[in-house]
């Protein structure tokens, strides 16, 4: 042990000398303008009056695409310091009241939250549509739609119910539901349309996507709740099943609902405080609109091509400068 200690000491002294030598030699210093560090976080020059912009990021890739582009523009064109906060919707809305969140940049309906935070607590305000249209409904993998074209009409679903049977569905056909974040009327729908199906809760978007991906790959029978825009549609273009047409008010009584889901005009929500702040980021959020294709493109960059959100946003912004300029004019 004595020998070891001696060795240690020699080693330590050596490292210390080496360290001092390196200090003498120098190298790029932290904070130097010429530093080799990638200067993405420091606001490049024009840090104007924008200040900090707290942007909620809800956990799905389409949202992330919106957020990436808005954040990129806010940082690079407006000089804002953007803080992205990864939050579930409910918690993000809660954040309006506490001042922790300035904007939610893709909102799916959520009339309950609107009532609670916009009407009752008055901590949030609506600032218009994103231009994206949200569809919710029942989807089947493309191979199934091709092999049995009539399956895309709900009237024919019972014919195939036996094929959809699984270990979970108790003798009936399985309707795979359940991203827990979305409201679903599916149990009522199955009952009121008198379908021989049972709703099974997958429990997460991940579970749903994995089920559809596998079904397409192995030609398995799966029907389930899904929605678009969604990046997964670019990988496997699921086919929507036609349900009885939506008419205003047909889903008023959730017990008796027997029609399709409405088309959601996806919109943007900001905190009341942010709306009054006069921040240029507020105008950006207010003016931001784009199409489903735009979003799917950026979402695909992120989810499929595994680009960072920043890189994906840069790529899209560079290619669509005109649209961006319209938001910040």
């Amino acid at each position: 042990m004595a020998g070891q200690a001696a060795k240690w000491r020699v080693g330590a002294a050596g490292v210390a000398v080496l360290g001092l030598a390196l200090t003498a030699c120098g190298g790029a210093k932290v904070g130097d303008t010429a530093s080799g560090s990638d200067d993405s976080s420091g606001a490049s020059g024009s840090s104007g009056k924008c200040g900090t912009f707290n942007l909620a990021v809800n956990p799905w890739v389409g949202y992330e695409a919106n957020a990436a582009v808005v954040a990129y523009v806010a940082e690079n064109d407006l000089g804002c310091k953007v803080t992205k906060k990864d939050l579930k919707e409910e918690i993000a809305w809660q954040g309006f009241g506490t001042g922790e969140v300035d904007a939610v940049i893709e909102n799916w309906g959520h009339d309950d939250l609107k009532k609670k935070y916009i009407t009752d607590q008055k901590t949030a305000v609506e600032v218009g549509a994103t231009g994206n249209e949200g569809l919710i409904g029942w989807y089947v993998p493309p191979w199934l739609a091709k092999a049995h074209p009539d399956i895309t009409d709900w009237n024919n679903l019972d014919k195939y119910a036996a094929e959809f049977k699984t270990s979970e569905s108790g003798g009936k056909g399985q309707l795979l539901d359940g991203d827990p974040s979305f409201v679903t009327n599916d149990e009522a729908l199955v009952k009121n349309l008198k379908l021989d199906f049972k709703v099974v809760y997958a429990g997460s978007e991940t579970a749903l996507i994995q089920a559809f991906r596998k079904a397409e790959k192995n030609k398995e029978w799966v029907i389930g709740y899904f929605y678009e825009p969604q990046w997964f549609m670019a990988e496997v273009p699921l086919v929507k099943v036609k349900l009885p047409e939506y008419k205003a008010g047909c889903d008023a009584d959730l017990e008796k609902v027997a029609c399709d889901y409405p088309v959601y005009k996806l919109d943007k929500i900001v905190s009341a405080k942010f709306a009054k702040s006069g921040s240029p980021a507020y105008d950006l959020v207010k003016n931001f609109t784009w199409t489903n294709d735009d979003q799917n493109t950026v979402a695909k960059y992120i989810a499929e091509d595994k680009m960072t959100p920043e890189a994906a946003a840069k790529k899209w912004v560079d290619a669509n400068r005109a649209k961006v300029d319209a938001w910040i004019k």
């Binding site: 939250l113 827990p180 409201v183 809760y201 429990g203 997460s204 579970a207």
Partner: peptide, 19 residues
Amino acid sequence: GLVGAGALGYDVVAGFSQG
């Protein structure tokens, strides 16, 4: 609850996600 167990697990997850 996130992978198809349903029942209590799903209730908790859904409660976390939907007000």
